[in-house]
Amino acid sequence: MSDELAGKVAVITGGASGLGEGLVRRFAAEGAQVVFGDVDAERGKAVAEELGSAARFLPCDVTDLSQITALVGTAVGEFGGLHAMVNNAGISGTMHRRFLDDDLADFDAVLRINLRAVMAGTRDAGRHMAENGGGSILNLTSIGGIQAGAGVQTYRASKAAVIQFTKSVAIELAHHEIRVNAIAPGNIRTSIVRKSAAGEDRERLEAFEAKIRTQMRDDRPLKREGTVDDVAEAALYFATDRSRYVTGTVLPVDGGTVAGKVIVRRS
């Protein structure tokens, strides 16, 4: 590690597990003071205890916008500022066999977490950054928001909305020296695929996940499977001055998936 974030303060939502935990750990390892939130208080406290003084955990349900505001307030109040905001918290929604069978029961929850919370986190961080010399805001979207496909349509719609929001607000906040960018992970092994099939029995769930992973591998030009560390590395770039002339961008971290279909060459 190179202490690229030494002296910086970061806020990360959804930081107790998966991609969020990877971001918390990488930012702390690079010297940042990290304030992170999650609904999983037990896991969040364990991560914070392991990282020691580098991290501060707050239970945070991003459907309650005041709790996002509290994360930003804690960063400013306890650590003296906020240089990087990562809106990472998200859910997949329920996967149905056909869209025609989707009762849209999870629509409000998915949009509140995946879109409204991102907007609120951007707003709250932006209010501080606008008065204190700027900063970096990073929103987590998905290749599902870039590339059309079957299944989890509400999730895809929410992630596409994050992309449009990110680009739009980047234009507005640029005159405050606030950079707003997005990362679109794809084919990263986390629990989100499994959670989208909640309600299935264990055997069918494992078969479902294996099928999805195989399809992802076949669609991915780079055959190495992506990791949480790959996403954290991209996030680090956006959080540092290396990206000082970059705003309004969406970076797929997906092994080339959205670039196009793999061509099968026959010998």
Rank of each mutant, 00 (worst) to 15 (best):
Pro185Tyr: 05
Met119Arg: 13
Met216Tyr: 09
Arg202Asn: 14
Arg56Ile: 06
Ile12Trp: 00
Phe208Trp: 13
Gly226Glu: 01
Asp101Met: 06
Ala174Lys: 07
Arg217Ala: 14
Asp38Gly: 09
Ile178Ala: 07
Arg98Asn: 13
Gly44Leu: 05
His83Thr: 00
Met129Tyr: 02
Ala29Leu: 08
Ala125Asn: 06
Ala29His: 05
Arg56Tyr: 12
Leu111Val: 13
Phe79Ile: 07
Ala109Gln: 15
Gly149Thr: 09
Thr13Arg: 05
Gln153Ile: 13
Met95Tyr: 12
Ala197His: 14
Ala182Gln: 04
Gly15Cys: 08
Ala239Gly: 04
Leu111Gln: 15
Arg127Cys: 09
Gly37Leu: 05
Asp64Tyr: 10
Glu225Cys: 08
Val250Asp: 10
Met85Gln: 11
Ala259Cys: 10
Val76Met: 06
Val47Leu: 09
Ser17Phe: 09
Ala170Arg: 02
Arg179Glu: 06
Pro59Ser: 08
Asn87Lys: 04
Thr247Cys: 02
Lys195Val: 08
Asp201Glu: 11
Lys195Pro: 01
Leu236Pro: 00
Asp106Asn: 12
His83Asp: 15
Asp101Ile: 04
Lys211Ile: 06
Gly126Met: 00
Val193Thr: 15
Leu138Pro: 02
Val246Asp: 01
Asp241His: 10
Leu71Ile: 00
Ala10Met: 06
Ala239Met: 05
Ala232Pro: 03
Tyr155Met: 13
Ile146Val: 15
Ala239Lys: 00
Gly260His: 07
Met129Val: 03
Gly80Tyr: 05
Val152Asn: 07
Met1Thr: 13
Val152Cys: 10
Tyr155Ser: 11
Ala46Asp: 15
Gly15Val: 01
Glu78His: 11
Leu205Thr: 14
Asp102Met: 07
Thr74Glu: 15
Ala6Leu: 13
Ile263Asn: 08
Ala234Val: 09
Arg116Thr: 15
Gln33Val: 03
Val258Met: 04
Arg123Pro: 06
Gly126Val: 02
Gly90Arg: 01
Arg217Ser: 14
Val110Met: 07
Ala89Arg: 03
Pro252Asp: 05
Ala29Thr: 04
Thr227Tyr: 07
Ser243Cys: 10
